[in-house]
Simulated assay, not measured.
Amino acid sequence: MTAKPSRKPRVPNFSSGPCAKRPGYDVSQLDLRALGRSHRSALGKELLGRACRDTARILGLPAGYRIGIVPASDTGAVEMALWSLLGPRPVDMLAWESFGAGWIKDVVEQLKLPDVTRHEAGYGELPDLSRVNFDHDVVFTWNGTTSGVRVPDGDWIPDERAGLVICDATSAVFAMELPWHKLDVVTWSWQKVLGGEAAHGMLILGPRAVERLESHTPPWPLPKIFRMTSGGKLMEGIFEGDVINTPSMLCVADYLDALDWCEREGGVPGLIARSQASLKVIEDFVATHPWISFLARTPETRSNTSVCLSLDLPPERVKALARLLEGEGVAYDIGSYKEAPPGIRIWCGATVETSDVAALMAWVEWGHEQVR
């Protein structure tokens, strides 16, 4: 019988969104000068512009790539791209978990595009990437947050392609290496890898996406919050801090704090290393405990952020384990996504300390014995 662990994670927040705040986070240390001020004031525009500029610099975006803050989190950013850009070419849609499946549903049932090729796989697997047609527009998620399955790299995307590549990378940006020159549109939200607050999305447009926006007028009406052109030209202000709708300046201050922390940790390489170290703790644990396994079928496709695990327990016992660990104050919000196979999901993004993941796994072992 495994003894009840004596050491608990210092921060038991392992949710896959909103995610744990950065180590040492203190809300009283935020730059709150803009609270109660207009986002269109000189100060508001300066801070919003800095959020765009600093993000582009830290990520190392190529020349000509624009980045803007948009409404409605990653969902809003993806919908802006789909509704504004799709239509001129056939579309290849990829899905291997719930969010990718949701984008297929939107394109097929809402936009009603006539020529859509679906590349789908079940939870734990990837579709055959070699079958994707890049003469078409291509839409995919880099990391399946609800399945813990990611694309292994960008080698399957050609440098020369006729269609646009639209990538939902909400749990990958700042945690995985992304080949920016192969991606024409990238979306994510503050609440994931940097542990920011919800409701604000980020949208990156490459030059080819801008060209499409300025040459293509969608045949359907576009809501105001989706519109990125005026008079056939890109509304450049969106990508300079002149946002479409009113943002939370408190959330902006929080995001700028997260960016500063990212730089102190060595930028994107430093954050990737933190995330990979936490994944390694779980990999070592799984290797020595036969009753637990990764939902991802192959090591190359394992997510290092949303780590999804299967247990040799019936669904009701898996839920009992999650409740037990929450009751002990050692792990909050680790149950698998509602549409995913029963299991647990441990967020290992950079804001989570590897020592907390190590402490958690000892409790997972103890909890497994209690509920089986």
Rank of each mutant, 00 (worst) to 15 (best):
M1D: 09
M1E: 02
K4W: 00
K4N: 00
K8H: 07
F14L: 05
S15R: 10
S16M: 09
G17H: 01
G17A: 01
C19F: 01
Y25P: 05
V27L: 10
Q29E: 13
L30W: 12
L32I: 14
A34N: 07
L35T: 11
G36N: 01
H39A: 08
A42L: 13
L47C: 02
G49R: 06
C52Y: 00
R53D: 01
T55W: 07
R57C: 06
L59N: 11
P62F: 08
R66M: 05
I69P: 04
S73G: 04
D74P: 00
D74M: 04
A77G: 09
E79Y: 15
L82E: 01
L85V: 13
L85A: 03
L86V: 13
P88K: 03
P90M: 13
V91Q: 04
V91F: 12
L94F: 05
W96K: 09
F99H: 11
F99R: 14
G102K: 07
W103I: 10
W103T: 10
D106P: 00
V107I: 15
L111C: 08
K112R: 14
H119W: 07
Y123E: 08
L126H: 02
D128T: 07
L129A: 04
V132K: 03
D135N: 11
D137K: 10
V139K: 01
V139M: 00
T141V: 09
V149R: 01
G154L: 11
D155C: 10
D159Q: 09
A162E: 06
I166D: 07
C167R: 00
D168A: 02
L178I: 12
H181M: 12
D184N: 03
D184H: 00
Q191A: 13
G195W: 04
A199L: 07
H200T: 11
L203C: 06
P207C: 04
V210S: 03
V210I: 14
E211I: 04
S215T: 14
S215L: 07
H216A: 09
W220F: 09
P221E: 12
P221F: 12
P221K: 00
I225E: 10
M228H: 09
T229N: 05
S230H: 14
G231Y: 10
G231M: 11
G231L: 09
D242L: 07
V243M: 10
I244E: 01
S248G: 04
M249H: 04
M249P: 05
C251D: 08
C251S: 05
C251W: 08
V252S: 04
V252R: 02
D254Q: 11
Y255W: 07
D257L: 02
W261Y: 09
E265H: 11
G267N: 06
G267W: 07
G270C: 14
I272P: 09
I272Y: 03
R274F: 12
S275G: 12
Q276S: 11
A277Y: 07
L279S: 08
F285M: 11
A287E: 14
W291G: 15
I292E: 13
T298Q: 15
T301Y: 13
T301V: 15
N304S: 15
T305P: 02
S306C: 15
S306E: 15
C308I: 10
L313F: 13
P314E: 15
E316S: 12
V318Y: 01
R323F: 06
E326V: 06
E328V: 06
E328G: 02
V330R: 00
S336G: 14
S336N: 12
R345Y: 03
R345A: 07
W347S: 13
G349A: 11
A359Y: 01
M361S: 03
V364L: 14
G367Y: 11
Q370A: 14
